[in-house]
Amino acid sequence: MKTYKLTAFESNGEKVLDESFQAEHDDAAKELGQKLLAEKNLLERTHRCSSPSGKLLLFHS
């Protein structure tokens, strides 16, 4: 399992979410990241999900 990082921001740059989570691979992490954002009503906020190697899996500004 790899550790991925999910972060979401307010329009003023304040972090509203900063979580790490485990997933088998990048596709699974992307799905899980979207699910977590949806559960917290953060899909429309600026957000990003990155892999352990720094690859950007999700991004919305």
Rank of each mutant, 00 (worst) to 15 (best):
K40L: 14
D18S: 08
A38L: 15
E39V: 03
L17A: 05
L58P: 02
R48Y: 04
F59Y: 13
L6H: 05
K35N: 09
K30F: 05
K2C: 08
E24L: 06
K5D: 10
E24Y: 07
A29W: 01
E14R: 10
D27Y: 02
C49D: 03
Q34H: 15
K35G: 08
C49S: 01
T46F: 05
H60F: 12
F21V: 01
F59G: 01
H60P: 03
Q22V: 14
G54C: 09
P52Y: 06
A38Y: 15
L6A: 00
L17K: 02
S11K: 15
L57V: 03
S61T: 14
M1K: 05
S20N: 13
E10L: 13
M1H: 10
D18W: 12
N12I: 10
F21Q: 00
D18I: 04
T3C: 04
T7D: 06
E14G: 06
L57Q: 04
R48G: 07
Y4D: 00
P52A: 04
Y4C: 00
Q34T: 11
D18T: 03
H60G: 11
H60C: 10
K40V: 04
E19A: 06
H25G: 06
E14C: 13
D18Q: 13
H25T: 09
E10T: 08
S53E: 12
G13L: 07
H60M: 14
N41Y: 08
K2N: 10
A8C: 03
T46S: 12
F59C: 07
K55H: 10
L37W: 11
E39G: 04
V16I: 15
L32C: 03
D27A: 07
T46D: 14
K5Y: 15
L42A: 07
D27Q: 08
K35A: 09
L36S: 02
T46M: 12
S51Y: 11
R48A: 09
N12Q: 11
G33I: 01
A23N: 02
S50D: 09
L6N: 00
L17M: 04
A38H: 13
K5V: 09
G33D: 01
F9H: 10
A38K: 13
L32I: 04
E24T: 14
L17T: 03
H25K: 08
L42Y: 07
S20P: 01
L32G: 01
L37Y: 07
N12G: 11
T7W: 07
H25V: 06
R48V: 02
S53I: 12
E14L: 11
H47I: 09
A23R: 01
L37E: 03
C49T: 05
G13Q: 04
R48C: 04
R48L: 06
E10Q: 15
S51M: 05
A23H: 04
E19K: 03
F9Q: 09
D26S: 01
F9R: 06
L36G: 02
K40H: 11
L36Y: 03
F21I: 00
K40M: 13
K35M: 12
S11I: 15
L43T: 12
M1S: 10
K40R: 15
G13S: 06
E24C: 04
E10H: 12
G54T: 11
L57W: 06
Q34W: 14
A29N: 01
A38N: 14
E14S: 13
V16H: 11
K2L: 09
E31K: 08
C49K: 03
L37G: 00
K15Y: 05
F9I: 05
S53C: 10
S11V: 15
R48F: 03
